[in-house]
Design a protein around this nucleic acid. Structure first.
Lengths: 131, 131
DNA sequence: CTTGACCCTCCCATGATGGGAACCCCCAGA
DNA sequence: TCTGGGGGTTCCCATCATGGGAGGGTCAAG
């Protein structure tokens, strides 16, 4: 009946390793049994699921910490949550656009490279710095 | 006259720290002077610039290693370079799309959150796992 | 009493980068 | 000649989130 870390991992979709890590940085505080084993009650599992969902959206753990605090705070202002989320959206989009821009540059370069057995290659020329 | 690591850093746009790191992993092999100082000849600077350009396109250092080998190989087939580049393009685009997808999910959630002083918040509801 | 499936804590590695300590080298100015 | 300063050198540590693995404790079923 006692929910140990393995059960919690299966129930939450968070690896045991990560569950221990989240505890080490203070995101979750499971009780301990007499033998030293961690024990997870329902609210602990809910916290782990919350963390997983937030991580699925790539919130950094420090953001997750704030989100958890807001979640636990019955009287929080949803505006704060929204600001945090939109800040993260901005970061995600900036990163996505940066990556896509690099992909596009490289695609254009690759398009001008015949890509056969011949050695001449505009991709290497560009990396070398020829313009 | 002797080009030391500081000069190489300024000439290549790569930090001293990174220049030493690239040497540690075998991407560049500067000569050493009698006093132990590294000495960079023109080809070394060119390698550093090449690395920087590749890193600007977010090629992982292991890819950079292969690109350098191909670059040094006068008889390489441009097809190999092209394959490597297109593989990286695919990785970049996958990552970019993944990030953009997360941003979109979160934007939609944020759009349904009034974001005022009231506590109810669909963002937290979603993270909690209510459906 | 052994076996096997758990659990525990620690240490190490990833990838690319930076910070900083402790120490060496060299040159110019007092 | 001493000193200061601006190089250089190596080595260790931190980041961020995650996983691997060693070495050892716990417990129930056979």
């Amino acid at each position: 009946m006692t929910i140990t870390i393995g059960d919690a991992a299966r129930a939450s979709g968070v690896s045991e390793k990560m569950i221990r890590h989240y505890e080490a940085i203070g995101l979750v505080r499971p009780a301990r049994q007499a033998n030293g084993y961690r024990h997870y009650a329902e609210p602990d599992i809910a916290v782990l699921r919350f963390i997983r969902h937030a991580r699925d959206l790539a919130f950094p753990l420090e953001d997750v910490r704030r989100l958890l605090a807001l979640w636990h705070d019955r009287g929080r202002a949803s505006g704060e949550v929204r600001r945090l989320a939109l800040g993260h959206v901005a970061a995600l989009e900036a990163k996505a656009q940066s990556l896509q821009a690099m992909a596009n540059s490289l695609k254009h370069l690759a398009a001008t490279c015949h890509g056969d057995d011949r050695p001449d290659c505009p991709i290497l020329d560009e990396l070398e710095g020829k313009h």
